[in-house]
């Protein structure tokens, strides 16, 4: 099975996010980027499928900050190919545009399965995987946490609330939005990443279509109002523990 994993760099939420002067975007000068954590799961699931059933894994990403690092890391983990889309699509480009561009690149490639992360922290205009599937006109299922090949199709589990899951059979090719891989995404030893950086090559392609109707624009970005928020408890751990117990007693939760 040949699997394509489109991955996306998203702003690292460990950093404090600031909003730019006109209030319509993040202040991107000081942002750092990190691979979308759901994409890590998609990649892991793809690698597991490849290890179990053969085939190839191709990782594909848009050029941007630290993209190379993410792609080399993916190869170090076991991906066979890394492709970089070199169109000038700045961070924050709407998913409709990215999905269309991806679709134009993927239509020239052979694949059985496309695994993406189910969502990303900046999916303002919808999830990339679902958009991509519809541009490609291939079936999709999102919030997937289990994939197994089954006679030219795949059997997938889709998660609903409350631990209920639905099982579907999906004809290939298909797009799956991965919620969680069967195991914690593997570690890429830095020695191997460095070796990959010296030896492996990232293929570069240009997307032929980056025109998509997004139909929405950002008017304003703001940090959530600090509502009343929590009343903060201060002091030593013991003092805090005592305050908590007092609160629990007042609320009648603890005698």
């Amino acid at each position: 099975m040949n699997i394509i994993v489109p991955v996306k760099q998203v702003p690292d939420l460990v950093e404090e996010l600031e909003i730019n002067e006109d209030g319509t975007d993040l202040d991107r000068d000081y942002l750092s980027y990190k691979l979308n954590e759901f994409d890590e799961h998609a990649l892991e699931e793809a690698l597991l499928l490849k290890e179990e059933h053969g085939g190839t894994v191709t990782v594909i990403a848009f050029e941007g900050e630290d993209t190379d690092k993410a792609l080399y890391t993916a190869i170090a983990k076991g991906a066979d190919r890394a492709v970089k889309i070199t169109n000038d699509l700045p961070p924050g480009t709407p998913n409709h545009v990215l999905a269309k561009a991806l679709a134009s690149v993927l239509s020239g490639m052979e694949y059985d399965l496309i695994l993406t992360g189910v969502q990303a922290a900046d999916d303002r205009d919808g999830q990339l995987g679902v958009l991509l599937a519809n541009y490609l006109d291939v079936p999709h299922v999102s919030v997937v946490s289990g994939v197994a090949p089954n006679n030219g199709a795949v059997t997938v589990q889709k998660e609903y609330a409350g631990g209920v899951m639905a099982e579907f059979e999906v004809d290939l090719p298909a797009v799956l939005g991965v919620q969680a891989a069967r195991q914690t995404p593997r570690y890429a030893p830095v020695s191997r990443v460095r070796q990959v950086m010296r030896q492996a090559e990232i293929e570069e392609v240009e997307a032929s279509d980056t025109e998509a109707e997004v139909g929405s624009s950002i008017r304003r970005m703001f940090k959530p109002e600090k509502g009343a928020g929590a009343q903060m408890l201060e002091g030593s751990p013991e003092e805090i523990a005592e305050q908590i117990i007092k609160i629990l007693q007042e609320k009648g939760i603890k005698k």
């Binding site: 030893p189 830095v190 020695s191 191997r192 990443v193 460095r194 070796q195």
Partner: peptide, 8 residues
């Protein structure tokens, strides 16, 4: 054991 990380 992460000698690559060290070198990096």
């Amino acid at each position: 054991g992460e000698i690559g990380l060290f070198e990096e």
